[in-house]
Simulated scan of single mutants.
Amino acid sequence: MTAWIQQIFNATKRYTVWDFALLKLCLIAMGILIGMYFSSQLASVTALIWGAFLVSYAVIVYKTLVTYSRD
C-alpha cells in the first residue's frame, strides 16, 4: 500500500500547469455538485456540471494512474 501511495506522489510531481488546472476544475465542479443538493438555484445546469466533473475526473485519474506512473 505504501509503495502505491509513493507511486501516486511521484506521478503528481510530473503534473503540468494544465493538469493542475484540470484538477481544480474537477474539485470546483465536485464542490458545486455537493452544494447543489442543498440549493435548487443551479438545478438547470446540473447536467453540465456533472459532465465537467466526470470528464475532468476521468482525465486526472487516467493521467495519474496510467500516463505518469509508467516510469
Rank of each mutant, 00 (worst) to 15 (best):
G51V: 03
F38D: 06
A11T: 01
S69F: 01
G51L: 09
M30P: 04
I49G: 00
M30Q: 12
K24C: 13
C26A: 03
Y62G: 06
A3N: 08
A29H: 00
F53V: 02
I8V: 13
I32P: 00
A58C: 11
A11I: 02
L23E: 01
Y15H: 05
S40M: 08
R70C: 15
I34E: 07
I28M: 10
L54K: 08
L65H: 03
I60R: 02
S44V: 09
T2D: 08
G35M: 02
G51K: 09
Y57F: 14
G31Q: 04
W50I: 05
L54S: 11
V59Q: 05
S56Y: 01
S40H: 09
A11Q: 01
V66A: 13
I34M: 07
I60H: 05
V45Q: 08
T46D: 09
T12C: 11
I32M: 04
I8Y: 01
M36F: 02
I5G: 05
M1S: 15
R70A: 14
Y15T: 05
A43E: 08
G31S: 05
K13C: 14
I49D: 00
G31H: 03
L22S: 03
R70P: 09
S69E: 04
S44Q: 12
V17K: 15
A52W: 13
T16D: 04
V17T: 14
Y37Q: 13
Q6H: 15
T12V: 15
R14H: 08
S56D: 00
V17D: 14
W18Y: 10
F38A: 12
L23S: 06
T2W: 13
A3R: 15
M30L: 13
L23W: 03
F20S: 15
V66F: 10
I28F: 09
S39C: 08
L22W: 02
I28W: 06
A52Q: 06
V61Q: 13
T64H: 03
I49H: 00
G51A: 09
K63Y: 02
I5T: 12
W50Y: 10
K13P: 10
N10Y: 14
M36D: 00
S44P: 03
V45S: 12
A47E: 07
D71S: 13
L48E: 07
R70S: 12
L23M: 12
Y68M: 04
T2P: 07
V17Q: 11
F53E: 00
G35N: 04
T64A: 06
D19M: 10
I49V: 04
M36V: 01
L65W: 05
N10C: 11
S39G: 05
K13S: 15
V45C: 07
C26Q: 03
L25D: 02
L27S: 13
I49L: 01
Y57P: 02
K13V: 12
Y68C: 01
S56E: 00
Y37F: 09
A47I: 09
K24S: 11
M30R: 14
L27V: 08
S39P: 03
T46R: 06
Y15G: 00
I32T: 05
F38S: 10
T46K: 07
A21H: 14
Y57R: 06
Y57E: 09
I34T: 15
M30K: 13
F38Q: 08
T67H: 09
G31V: 08
R14N: 10
F53K: 00
V66D: 15
A52D: 07
L54V: 14
G35A: 03
C26F: 02
M1R: 13
F9R: 13
D71F: 13
L65Y: 05
T46W: 10
V45G: 10
I32L: 08
